[in-house]
């Protein structure tokens, strides 16, 4: 699903590369954590996968598509196969829960009838049935993140990218969100999650890819966050 081969990324503003010769392969249906301290390159990996930026060197392939050869006009189609969740939820405050989720379908031109059918299904999947007409400020942090996950998943992506999705949540709510991400993973969606949350990583015992100073220093199939961190 994800193939990074000798990928490097340098920014003009920094002397040290953000990513330095990174080679990682994530297979279809996997659940993988991307861990490492701030500035280790986790977010850079996610931005490269989303094709928000291009690597300085190396090759990136996502769902069989070579991103280096992807024309600018084809980038939106690439992103339709991905879902994205962030620490700060990024919900539209003036839209209701169902409008927020439907927005992702509206803007890619899905017909209204399909949206009316799909949105309630996804809201049920994330446990928000009955809250479709609420506005984001009427929801708890955990519920808001569920809306964001519903929006990321509503287009049935092949790959879900999550950037610190539990960073703003208390441990119990975080555990609920992880259960939801696991459920999504069980539908066949590959999940790559960047996190600092050692409790979650340790309890899930999933694949762990650790970055430090832009390099992969550890890649374990059933890893923990790490001793002494």
């Amino acid at each position: 699903m994800i193939h990074l081969s000798h990928v490097s990324k340098s920014y003009k503003t920094s002397t040290r590369p953000a990513l330095d010769d990174v080679t990682v392969h994530v297979e279809k249906g996997e659940f993988a954590f991307l861990i490492g301290p701030s500035g280790s390159g986790k977010s850079t990996v996610l931005r490269l996968l989303l094709r928000e930026e291009a690597p300085t060197g190396g090759r990136i392939e996502v769902a069989g598509r070579d991103l280096g050869r992807l024309r600018r006009s084809k980038v939106p189609q690439h992103r339709r196969r991905l879902g994205c969740v962030f620490q700060d939820f990024r919900l539209l405050t003036n839209k209701t829960v169902e409008q927020n989720v439907g927005f992702a379908l509206e803007v890619i031109g899905r017909p209204r009838g399909a949206i009316r059918t799909i949105v309630p299904e996804v809201l049920e999947l994330v446990g928000l049935e009955g809250k479709a007409r609420r506005l984001p400020h009427e929801l708890s942090g955990g519920e808001q993140q569920r809306v964001a996950i519903a929006r990321a998943f509503v287009n049935r992506p092949l790959l879900l990218l999550a950037d610190e999705p539990t960073g703003n949540l208390d441990p119990d709510t975080s555990a609920d969100i992880m259960l939801l991400l696991e459920r999504i993973n069980r539908t066949g969606t590959t999940v790559l999650m960047a996190t600092h949350d050692n409790t979650i990583v340790d309890s899930m015992r999933r694949r762990v890819i650790e970055l430090q100073l832009g390099r992969v220093v550890r890649d374990e199939a059933r890893g923990v966050y790490g001793v002494g961190r």
């Binding site: 994205c84 927005f103 890619i108």
Partner: peptide
């Protein structure tokens, strides 16, 4: 910018945005 960043992420075309 929140709307446009979401549109970009979910794959709305540049023209649509």
């Amino acid at each position: 910018r929140t709307e446009t960043s979401i549109m970009r992420l979910v794959g709305a075309s540049r023209w649509r945005t």
